[in-house]
Structures are given as structure tokens and as C-alpha cells.
Amino acid sequence: MSIDTEVAALRKVSLFSGIDETKLRLLAFISERMEFQDGEDLCVQGDVGDSAFIILRGEAAVIVDGEHVATVGEHAILGEIAILCDMPRTATLRAIGTTDVLTVSKENFLKLMKEFPEMSLEVMRVLAQRLEKTTRDLADAKSHS
């Protein structure tokens, strides 16, 4: 497993889509790659999150209030909001089988953004697009109701 597969996985994350190759490689290098065994928790609902998870291999169950609500697989990014602001985890993530996860910590991500301001702009752009989409969706929903 090398850094290249991790970079490929990061590239699929929309938040990072505009960031150039070398920065992504650096992000991958300073992120931790963790292995979780079947049944181990990546994070627990209610805890304050400080990292985002990108599943490189295997699957994880999304559990809300004890209920298994979804299963996520390879290349899924989870808890990305946590790397931008402090928020309690909205769900518990539990590994199904052996799962390899790339953990991007808030601290490291912010350090990178500080180092390369153009990265921040890219992230802002993505967030703005999302906001715009959400607003539009909300307006649609309102007009339909």
C-alpha cells in the first residue's frame, strides 16, 4: 500500500477536488493510516470529532442511536465537517471486517491550509457551491410544500 492509492482516494473527495496533486500527496503523507478490526469503532456518536475518515479498504456501519442506518464502503469520506469545526459526532462508525482507514486530523489539515492559503480558497469554493445547492434545494422544497 503506497501513498499513491491514498492520493487517489483523497482525490475522490469533493472537498479536496480542487487541490493540486503535490498538496494532496503531502496531506496523505502526514495523515495516519489505521487498520480497524471487525467491530472496532472508528468514532463514537456524541464524541467531539477531530478527524475525517476515508475508507481505503473494507466497510463500515453507520449507527445512529444504536440503529444500523447505513453501510459505507471504499472511498467513502466520513466526518469531513469535523476537520473544519468542532462538532459532536452524529453517528457511530463501526468497522465491518478488517477495514483500512486514512485518518485526516483537523490539526494537520488546518496546518496545511495555513501553509498554503490557495488550498483554503479551494475548500471555500467547494463549501460555497454546497451552500448554494442546499439553499436551492430548500427553496424547491418550500415551493413544493
Binding site: 500527496r25 503531502l26 503523507f29 502526514i30
Partner: peptide, 20 residues
């Protein structure tokens, strides 16, 4: 080679360099 590629843009006083 990889270190030069990854870190040559990073400023000298950044913790990134020291830590990683």
C-alpha cells in the same frame, strides 16, 4: 526525492517539516 517534492514549498518555520 519524495521529501523534496513534498516539502520544498513548505516554509522553513512550519511545524510540518519538523514533525513529519
Amino acid at each position: 526525492g519524495i521529501m523534496i517534492e513534498l516539502f520544498s514549498d513548505v516554509s522553513g518555520d512550519s511545524e510540518l517539516l519538523d514533525t513529519y
